[in-house]
Computed example of a mutant assay.
Amino acid sequence: MVAPKGGGNAWVWGLTSMILFMIFLMINVFIRLKKLDESEPEKRLTFKEWWATIDAKFFTKAIPLEKEEEFILDHEYDGIRELDNSLPPWWKYGFYATIVVAFFYLLRFHVWKTGPNPEQEYNTEMRIAAAEIEAYRKSSNDMVDEKTVTMSDAAGIAAGKQIFNKQCFVCHGMNGEGGVGPNLTDDYWLHGGSINDVFKTLKYGVSDKGMPAWEKAFSPSEIKNIASYVKSLKGTKPANAKSPQGELFAENELAKVQVDTATKK
């Protein structure tokens, strides 16, 4: 059994209370058995009789079969009559124990406030989970897609350049000046100019324009690096650059729109 994060102390308190209750119950049983033996010293009980005595007094406390007719209630339903039997002592003692535990719970969490309540535990676990997810994402570059991609660092851009020079220069030129494919160094884009758009174009391709999909050839982290290198080519003005194609993409205007939208939300 594993205690939930943030609630370990509550488990210790509850477990301690239950252990103390069980010890009290066992002491009570032994005291009563000792008194029973002292009252009938001449009679020695067999194990079966001894257990039956304990069971009748402390566990079931059921009415003997031969006396059940005296305790059957008058009402009847569908031929079934109710026996006015006692609740098992263990059940009653357990119920009393829950009252004791509830009393300490009330004091600790709502009066003394020495422990986190369920809402505080939930918020703590959510913060821990968010931190663990963020740490995992940082350690695993392949946990990225067109919605979560961000610019790579300098090392990632350098790695993206190596892949670009091996696979992409045929259509886009060695410096991104364009050829069969569009110029990648100006402000005009056929399929969007954000890092997310470039990642998506690289990943899924554009079949009607002859752009292959690279999602099976490269990992998400490699596609991220290529996209970041492509973005880094902006404004480099290589020789023999191809004329602009597509629509003008303003990076700063896009950022301003995103900020305004987030502010309104």
Rank of each mutant, 00 (worst) to 15 (best):
1 M>G: 14
2 V>L: 14
2 V>D: 15
3 A>I: 08
5 K>N: 06
9 N>H: 06
10 A>Y: 03
14 G>W: 00
18 M>P: 01
19 I>M: 15
20 L>F: 03
26 M>K: 06
30 F>A: 06
32 R>K: 11
32 R>I: 06
34 K>L: 15
36 L>A: 10
36 L>D: 06
37 D>C: 13
40 E>P: 02
41 P>M: 10
48 K>E: 10
56 A>W: 02
57 K>C: 02
64 P>N: 13
65 L>M: 13
68 E>T: 15
68 E>H: 08
69 E>K: 15
74 D>S: 15
74 D>E: 14
80 I>T: 14
82 E>L: 03
83 L>F: 11
85 N>H: 10
86 S>E: 13
90 W>T: 04
90 W>Q: 01
94 G>E: 01
95 F>T: 06
97 A>M: 11
98 T>V: 04
99 I>S: 05
100 V>K: 02
101 V>E: 01
103 F>V: 06
115 G>T: 12
117 N>R: 15
119 E>D: 09
122 Y>E: 10
138 K>L: 15
138 K>C: 10
143 M>I: 15
143 M>H: 14
144 V>D: 10
148 T>Y: 14
149 V>Q: 03
154 A>N: 14
160 G>Q: 03
164 F>L: 07
166 K>F: 09
166 K>R: 05
171 C>E: 03
173 G>L: 12
175 N>Q: 11
178 G>R: 15
186 D>Q: 13
187 D>Q: 04
189 W>F: 08
193 G>Q: 07
193 G>R: 04
194 S>Q: 02
195 I>E: 03
197 D>N: 11
197 D>A: 08
198 V>H: 01
202 L>R: 05
204 Y>V: 00
209 K>R: 12
211 M>S: 11
215 E>G: 02
217 A>V: 09
217 A>W: 04
225 N>Q: 10
228 S>R: 01
228 S>T: 00
229 Y>P: 05
229 Y>A: 04
231 K>C: 04
231 K>F: 03
233 L>C: 02
234 K>P: 07
235 G>V: 00
239 A>D: 12
240 N>A: 06
248 L>H: 11
255 A>Y: 03
256 K>W: 00
257 V>L: 07
